[in-house]
């Protein structure tokens, strides 16, 4: 089973390769679960039919999709023994996909990736304007960012298939014991503090009061504008704003 999990986890790296608007990650899902279907059923016609059954609408977080794949593997086993119907397998898969996507979006895209980005950027900001405080090591920043991020990514991706298969639907109860949401909140608070601190250290190195004031004015304005406008619009508006201010400096 562990060997299977590895094979399927590697296949799941391509889960978004034929992303389409109609059924989203369905091609990647069918591609990932294929080894297990081939192992369960020896008849080629049945294999093809089962894969076709799994070709419906599917969209979830790419890392946590493996959890879903593990659960579906367990359900397929039950179906092959005739304990449940095909409809039930597909319906459970679809019902679970939505909330798992929500968890993944909040945990990974919205919190962990942002946090790792902030850590990497803070190292640069702490070094001050033009390496004022210390010489920044580019390779260190890259290494820390990629290492920190993939520290969560790779175990999540590669162990999820096994967890999903072993615990099946109980994996949700196990997840709930982790109190994910409170950890997310504390990470977010640490992220804000780190960013503010590094911006402070960066601005102190300016040696020019006016530039300092413009810097913090930008931060406050972009916080206020973020509530209403998209990032790119904020960037261009503040870019022009800065140009105008600097002309009169």
């Amino acid at each position: 089973m562990k060997f299977f999990s590895l094979r399927i986890a590697i296949r799941s790296l391509l889960i978004q390769s034929m992303w389409n608007y109609e059924r989203m990650q369905n091609v990647g899902f069918a591609f990932s679960i294929k080894p297990f279907i081939n192992y369960l059923y020896k008849d080629k016609v049945v294999q093809g039919e089962r894969i076709k059954a799994h070709f419906g609408f599917f969209n979830t977080h790419p890392y946590l999709a493996n959890l879903l794949i593990g659960i579906v593997m367990r359900l397929e086993e039950k179906y092959s023994r005739g304990e449940i119907s095909s409809d039930e397998v597909i319906r459970t898969k679809t019902m679970l996909a939505g909330p798992v996507a929500a968890i993944g979006d909040r945990l990974i895209w919205s919190t962990w990736r942002v946090f790792c980005g902030i850590v990497a950027v803070s190292i640069f900001l702490f070094s001050g304007k033009d390496n004022y405080w210390f010489e920044v090591n580019i390779k260190l920043i890259l290494a820390i960012f990629l290492f920190l991020y993939n520290l969560v990514h790779i175990p999540l991706r590669f162990f999820s298939v096994y967890w999903g298969y072993t615990y099946s639907s109980d994996v949700i109860h196990k997840l709930s014991k982790f109190s994910i949401q409170t950890k997310v909140l504390s990470l977010r608070k640490i992220g804000i503090l780190l960013l503010l601190l590094s911006a402070l250290v960066y601005s102190i190195s300016f040696e020019d009061y006016v530039l300092n004031i413009i810097f913090w004015l930008n931060i406050i304005l972009s916080i206020l504008l973020s509530k209403r406008y998209a990032q790119i619009i904020i960037f261009y508006v503040l870019f022009l704003f800065n140009m105008i201010i600097l002309i009169y400096k």
Binding site: N59, H61, T94, M95, A97, G98, P99, A101, A102, G104, D105, R106, W109, S110
Partner: peptide, 10 residues
Amino acid sequence: DRLVHGQVIE
């Protein structure tokens, strides 16, 4: 038809 999912939360 997907009830709670990423878009709704974020």
